[in-house]
Design a protein around this nucleic acid. Sequence first.
DNA 1: ATCATTTTGAGACAGCTTATCAATTTCAAT
DNA 2: ATTGAAATTGATAAGCTGTCTCAAAATGAT
Lengths: 144, 144
Amino acid sequence: MAAKHVKEMEALKEHLGKHQLKLTRQRELILSAFLRQEHITAEAMYHQLAKSDPHLGLATIYRTLNLFCDAGLAQARHFGSQTQYDNIAHKGHHDHLICTGCDKIVEFENCDIERLQEEVATQNGFIIKTHRLELYGLCSRCRH
Amino acid sequence: MAAKHVKEMEALKEHLGKHQLKLTRQRELILSAFLRQEHITAEAMYHQLAKSDPHLGLATIYRTLNLFCDAGLAQARHFGSQTQYDNIAHKGHHDHLICTGCDKIVEFENCDIERLQEEVATQNGFIIKTHRLELYGLCSRCRH
DNA sequence: ATCATTTTGAGACAGCTTATCAATTTCAAT
DNA sequence: ATTGAAATTGATAAGCTGTCTCAAAATGAT
């Protein structure tokens, strides 16, 4: 367990304590790997951790990532046919401009949009954990 | 085919023509049903259309809804374990607030966000055709 | 160290979507 | 209107993602 993830480790322990759950070697391992990512799928983590622990089961990874969601450390987001588990602590979110002509993807960040999103959420009694913004259109080259 | 959906019907025909695809009774039927919805799952449409055509296959509905996505009439959105097909013409410009606690969906519209999106796109040489904005978080009840 | 409780790993299982393929339908060219 | 190549359909098998089952192992309070 890297020292820099102590805060998240404590948060997990607190959740475990409150719900009569136990701290296991696997949960520590998966948390450590998870906190290094911005977002990851269970399958990707399964392959990534196969080196560290070849016997770590896929079901355990799913269970543990869902546990992280319950503990407020992760956020599940359905993307394509898979579930992405977002690292809530991770900063530096960016959105996407996607050209439907050539599939080019441009990443961008806009504080004003983020602020307005918060405003909308507050008006509706929501607290935002993550978001997804994708703008689909034609880039300058594909516009002809 | 209802007369009010002529525009979408033309758009579909144009797409079919460009890709050597054919206009079938099923495609007309499914388009007609789809345009009456704001968003729908393949399964829901399957049951809904069972009255009109008991032999219409589920696979055909999936294929056709995906065709509508290619034609720019629909947009697939993965939510929970299912895929929602959004009616782009009907939906116009509204986005979603999604509660990850109870799966509640609140639709909203915000002109300022739309304007900023256009701004970002212009700065990057893009012309937006559609977009998707989803805010994930907890609603007032699930926040505890 | 003991022992009730929780967790794990492996595979079975379930839900949603796509692939397969023979039979049918479409549509451009007669 | 008929023909025939190509696309589409319907039924179902197969694939993929994620959850459930359960015996064996690990945890942690005593």
